[in-house]
Structure formats: C-alpha cells, structure tokens
Computed example of a mutant assay.
Amino acid sequence: MKEITVQEVQQSIENGNKLNLIDVREVSEVQEGHVPGSINIPLGLLEFRLPELDKNTPYIIICRSGGRSGQATEFLNYQGYNATNMVGGMLAWEGKVEQ
C-alpha cells in the first residue's frame, strides 16, 4: 500500500499543488475539522460512491488516525484506483483545518 506523511501532504498544499483528498471519516467527525479541499466519503459509503471517482486520478485518503484510510486505500487500489494512505491521519495533521 502506498503511503504519504501528513508533512508531505501539507508541503504539497503549501506549494500550491492541487491534491484530490478523500476524508473517509463520518460526517460528524469531518464537521469538527477537515483538511481544506477534501471531500467526505464515509468509509461505509465508499463502495457505493465509486462512480464519482476517476481511475486515472490519484487520491490521498484521510481519516482520524490512519486505520480507516488504510482500509479505504486497500479497497480502492483493489478496485483499480490510484489511492495513497495519509499516515497518522487528522491526529497528526498540523496544517489548516476547515469546519
């Protein structure tokens, strides 16, 4: 499974790169704070929302600590998507957050 650190994601955003971030936490968790520009697809709904995703687009998957995003990353990669797990999740995130 491909992994990326929160620092690498933060640096990429600060450098002006457009990242495709998917937050797989529950809606209530995301409302408490999320990485700016991320979209919320709760882990339990991911398989039903696959048609919204593009297999040619690289995605970075986010959750609270890295567990659910790891599951989502493995699932997406198995389905033929280009997904990378953000290790440490929002607990390790030190950048801007939106609510």
Rank of each mutant, 00 (worst) to 15 (best):
M1H: 05
K2D: 00
K2S: 00
K2A: 00
T5E: 07
V6Y: 03
Q7T: 11
Q7C: 08
V9N: 04
V9P: 02
Q10G: 07
Q10P: 03
Q10F: 14
S12L: 13
I13L: 15
E14L: 12
G16V: 13
G16F: 06
N17Q: 13
N17T: 12
L19Y: 01
L21C: 07
L21Y: 02
L21G: 03
V24W: 02
R25A: 00
E26V: 14
E26T: 10
V27G: 05
S28T: 12
V30G: 02
Q31G: 12
E32W: 05
E32Y: 04
E32S: 13
G33E: 14
H34G: 11
V35H: 04
P36R: 15
P36I: 15
P36C: 15
P36S: 15
G37L: 13
G37N: 11
G37R: 07
S38Q: 08
I39W: 03
N40A: 05
N40T: 06
I41A: 14
L45V: 10
L46R: 07
L46D: 08
L46G: 04
E47S: 15
F48N: 14
F48Q: 15
F48K: 13
R49M: 15
R49F: 10
L50C: 11
L50Q: 07
P51L: 10
E52R: 07
L53N: 06
L53G: 04
D54G: 10
D54L: 14
D54F: 07
K55S: 12
N56W: 05
I60V: 08
I62S: 01
C63R: 02
C63E: 02
S65Q: 06
S65E: 10
G66M: 05
G66N: 04
G67I: 12
G67Y: 04
R68E: 02
S69A: 12
S69W: 03
Q71V: 08
Q71G: 02
A72E: 05
A72K: 04
A72I: 10
T73D: 01
T73W: 00
F75A: 13
F75N: 09
F75Y: 10
L76D: 02
Y78R: 09
Q79Y: 01
Q79I: 12
G80Y: 01
G80E: 02
Y81E: 03
Y81F: 12
N82P: 06
A83L: 00
T84V: 15
T84E: 01
T84L: 01
T84F: 00
M86Q: 03
M86D: 00
V87M: 08
G88M: 08
G88A: 07
G89S: 07
L91R: 05
L91H: 04
L91E: 08
A92K: 04
E94T: 12
K96L: 11
V97I: 15
E98Q: 11
Q99K: 13
Q99G: 14
